[in-house]
Design a protein around this nucleic acid. Sequence first.
DNA 1: ACCTGAACACCGTTCAAGT
DNA 2: ACCTGAACACCGTTCAAGT
Lengths: 224, 224
Amino acid sequence: MGRVKRPLTRDRVLRAAVRVADEGGLGALTMRRLAEVLGAEAMSLYYHVRNKEEVLDGVVEVITSEINDLVDKIDLPSEGAAWKAAVRTRILTAREVFLRHPWATGVFESRTSSNPAVLRYNDGMVRLLRDGGFTHDQIHHALHALGSRSLGFTQELFDPGTGPVTEESLAALRGMADAFPHLVSMLTEIAHDDPDSTLGWCDDQKEFEFGLDLILDGLDRLRA
Amino acid sequence: MGRVKRPLTRDRVLRAAVRVADEGGLGALTMRRLAEVLGAEAMSLYYHVRNKEEVLDGVVEVITSEINDLVDKIDLPSEGAAWKAAVRTRILTAREVFLRHPWATGVFESRTSSNPAVLRYNDGMVRLLRDGGFTHDQIHHALHALGSRSLGFTQELFDPGTGPVTEESLAALRGMADAFPHLVSMLTEIAHDDPDSTLGWCDDQKEFEFGLDLILDGLDRLRA
DNA sequence: ACCTGAACACCGTTCAAGT
DNA sequence: ACCTGAACACCGTTCAAGT
């Protein structure tokens, strides 16, 4: 934060990009704003990165490195049946990083990046599954089946509302009973079972773990 | 495509938006280009939609309606154990629509939309799972576990390359053996097993079905 | 009610020029 | 080698004005 103007580097640019997005969301991450926080002009950035795409690729690298730093510290057995707990912990640890940088999932989704950090993360995943006794072919399928869950986040399309369950939202729900009877039945029952839910309609973490365990259990059954 | 200038409507605007993206990708979908194909000025669009966000929300609605038209025609038993085949067919049918509009997954990912079309799709999904004997609570978990897979697409982060397996790509792979030993071992074995693969490293459809079946089998085991 | 022209505030990026 | 000022081509959007 000092007033002294350190020279720009690719690394400083990318770390600043994460900081800008942390503070103002992905929309705040413009080349001009990025230069501003670095005490430089927008055009100076182009000496260190080719274009904005490269900044976003770099952001993926920075975030994934943060994940790697955390998962590298995990010291759990992974031989045989222990693979599952090891992979589960790895993924839930990675997830913590996305909870700190909620805007980052969108960046990961927008590119199929295979930078060194992501490759290293996947390499560790292959190792754990290998320890579990899976064949290379099974591991390949497993990584595809996990998709973004492997890094700790999911794309939710079913979102019955993020706010808390209120009298208004319940009334709105009743109004849709004719058009979407099965959906409304389900949601009213869920709201009724947990009327004081301060978490809103769903507990993201619980749902993530449910889906993750479903897949891990399924994989475990495939082991030789 | 007659020369006659029909009046703009919200519906015409949204359908044109899908057409523009089909032809030039999501990047081509600008308000100015959209107006152009409709034979109007960009500013005229704002009489029918609030802003570009609403155009994108509308695109989700149009695409999901296309999906609903297809899945509504499916006539399969869904009582008891038959639920699985019914859901599987529904999802793979929805997937066909995204294969026709590959740019659309990005739009779905960028918003948690609950427009009427998406609600209707989910309503049908709840019905099928209900027929299968699941409780409302289980169905709720199931929809979260499926995530975007419920609509027929996944977010792939593990992508070892889209091109075909060539001598160059294999050489590049060998160069990474020190840094990512487990990953490289896996990929070389996969390439070796299927050396003439014209599909490239992975068959997207096969991987999608593998992951889908893993989840559906897992859910089936939860039924009362 | 429906559409438009001109204008504004913002992008990412190029290029020639500075030190 | 590193940084910058001015400028360009493009956005989405506002607003007053047309029919």
